[in-house]
């Protein structure tokens, strides 16, 4: 079954959009994506989305940063030994500060990397099948369907009070 037609239904209301998504579950068309001007938990719930795995990137970055910070401080202390009053060269307490800052830095870098990788950014091709009103005050539900189902999808969106655009 060819599913090469995308039909977007535009709605001016968050609540209504969530209701339409729920109503679509009884139909054979697939919801490809939903555009919104802000993150909507009502829409997330209607789509039954799972928690994002971006935290694993953050955690991996944090672990890497923790060991990088400590390793850097220890390595440099061993390379250039400043022996004062017989105190140990590897001074754990001040190195905690370096380790901590690197942990935060690498966690954030991991977080950004996760956001870009999972969110598919940068994505300039995606703009070809996008209605710019979705960054203003409209919510867009993009359904993919076959050519035969196209009229039914359009009718469905219109019956729900949506404005329809077709992307080839």
């Amino acid at each position: 079954m060819a599913t090469d037609i995308s039909v977007i239904g535009l709605f001016p209301d968050e609540q209504k959009t969530a209701a339409v998504i729920e109503a679509m579950s009884g139909y054979p068309w697939l919801i490809d994506r939903v555009h919104s001007p802000f993150p909507s938990h009502k829409i997330f719930d209607a789509l039954k989305l799972k928690k994002s795995p971006v935290g694993w990137f953050t955690l991996a970055g944090g672990i890497l940063g923790f060991f990088t910070g400590f390793s850097l401080a220890i390595y440099t202390a061993l390379e250039w030994k400043l022996i004062i009053w017989g105190k140990p060269i590897i001074a754990w307490i001040p190195f905690v500060i370096v380790g901590f800052e690197f942990t935060i830095l690498f966690s954030v870098l991991g977080n950004v990397l996760g956001l870009l990788a999972l969110g598919g950014l940068p994505d300039f091709k995606g703009l070809k099948q996008y209605d710019p009103r979705c960054s203003g005050g409209h919510f867009g539900i993009v359904a993919t369907c076959t050519e035969e189902e196209q009229d039914q999808v359009i009718e469905f969106f219109q019956n729900q009070g949506g404005e329809v655009t077709i992307f080839e």
Binding site: S52, V54, I104, G114, L118, D123, G126
Partner: peptide
């Protein structure tokens, strides 16, 4: 970056932003 506000982008964005805030808080104090 070609942002279109699709639900997959927002799903990761909201989670990532929360982690950003959680990491920036101890950082600012430090």
């Amino acid at each position: 970056l070609g942002w279109t506000g699709k639900h997959e982008q927002w799903r990761h964005y909201t989670r990532g932003y929360l982690f950003f805030a959680a990491l920036a808080t101890p950082l600012v104090i430090s």
